[in-house]
């Protein structure tokens, strides 16, 4: 066991799975970037491996037949991966930003997600699509979206949202071993996050929420980087004697409905924190589920803390205001705790 970054955890998952299973391949733009087979051309400190270094060292160990550089052609990458998956390979396709997945929706929505269903289970598509999500890096409106709710909406896709380095490794290994297409969403703001990560390979099953904090007063459900925002809010509220239970569902599809219900039935008060936009979003989806299944347990309306219904602003000041903050989460928790007396 040692302390590793989210980036290192992802890299270790890819390496260990590629060693274990020769069917695992990596495909994408710059997955071997910076690497050259001519030693005299290689910069001393350059291992290659993508914009954020998650695929560093793969080309050297596994070669160009399994670490495949592509042109910037998203639909070709995804079509190639879906086809390769049907033939028995286990491709891990990479698209640097989730914002670009829009150009290959047909490959993902109509091909990868549908093939197993349409072939009556005779075909399977063990495909992982790695991509980065989230705001906070001043990357502007076309490089900062979450978009996880769009993929959660599609039957046939699974969606993982690791919030820490330990989960990043275990969920990626599980995604690679899964026989269905998985959209694997890495938050750009978490790459430097450090955690205790076992050196050995391990798989975290999907639909197994992590109870980050135990508490009795109120349930906070948060996704991806918002887990850290919610955690900071919970620590602040603890000093005011409000004991929050914090759930990180880890995957939005499938969703660990049992853990959510168990917690809500205990606390009766819920705040959902999500960096996605609010309309038809993840927070609204979970809220509807809770209201439908645990109405009798609720003591207050379910509060949602999300980004507003706008594009992600480029201005640093506005971007900060866009992403749910510790203050907004803490205020929502207090409103919910005070209901009905202090409802604004």
């Amino acid at each position: 066991m040692s302390r590793k970054t989210y980036q290192k955890a992802l890299n270790e998952a890819l390496k260990q799975e590629m060693r274990r299973d020769p069917h695992v391949i990596v495909v994408g733009v710059d997955v071997a970037a910076g690497y050259t087979s001519r030693a005299e051309d290689a910069p001393d400190d350059q291992e290659g491996g993508g914009m954020l270094g998650a695929t560093a060292g793969l080309i050297q160990e596994f070669g160009a037949a399994r670490v495949i550089e592509t042109p910037i052609s998203e639909s070709a990458i995804m079509g190639m991966c879906a086809g390769a998956a049907c033939t028995g390979l286990r491709p891990v396709g990479e698209l640097m930003f989730v914002d670009f997945l829009g150009v290959c929706f047909d490959q993902i929505f109509n091909q990868a997600a549908k093939l197993r269903y349409m072939f009556g289970g005779k075909a399977k598509v063990p495909l992982v699509i790695r991509t980065t999500v989230g705001a906070g890096l001043n990357a502007a409106a076309q490089h900062s979206q979450m978009l996880h709710s769009i993929f959660t909406h599609i039957p046939g896709l699974k969606v993982a949202l690791p919030s820490n380095a330990y989960d990043a490794k275990g969920l990626l290994i599980n995604a690679i071993r899964d026989d269905d297409p998985v959209i694997f969403m890495e938050h750009k703001g978490l790459y430097e996050q450090v955690d205790e990560v076992p050196d050995e390979p391990y798989a975290i099953p999907f639909a197994e929420a992590n109870v980050v904090i135990d508490g009795d007063d109120l349930t906070v459900i948060a996704f991806s980087k918002m887990v850290h925002v919610a955690q900071a809010a919970a620590q602040r509220l603890e000093k005011e004697n409000i004991h929050v239970e914090l759930l990180d569902p880890r995957t939005s599809s499938p969703l660990d409905e049992d853990s959510i219900l168990e917690s809500v039935e205990k606390t009766g008060r819920v705040v959902i924190v999500d960096e996605g936009n609010p309309r038809c979003g993840m927070a609204a989806d979970v809220a509807a589920f809770i209201v439908n299944k645990a109405f009798a347990a609720l003591k207050a309306p379910v509060e949602l803390v999300t980004a507003p219904h706008t594009p992600v602003p480029f201005s640093p000041t506005l971007e900060q205001a866009y992403v749910p903050s510790v203050e907004k989460v803490a205020a929502a928790v207090k409103r919910t705790m005070a209901y009905p007396s202090a409802r604004a």
Partner: peptide
């Protein structure tokens, strides 16, 4: 519970 699950998730 978490520590034991972490152990049990390890390959092998």
């Amino acid at each position: 519970v978490n520590e034991l699950l972490k152990y049990k998730r390890l390959d092998g």
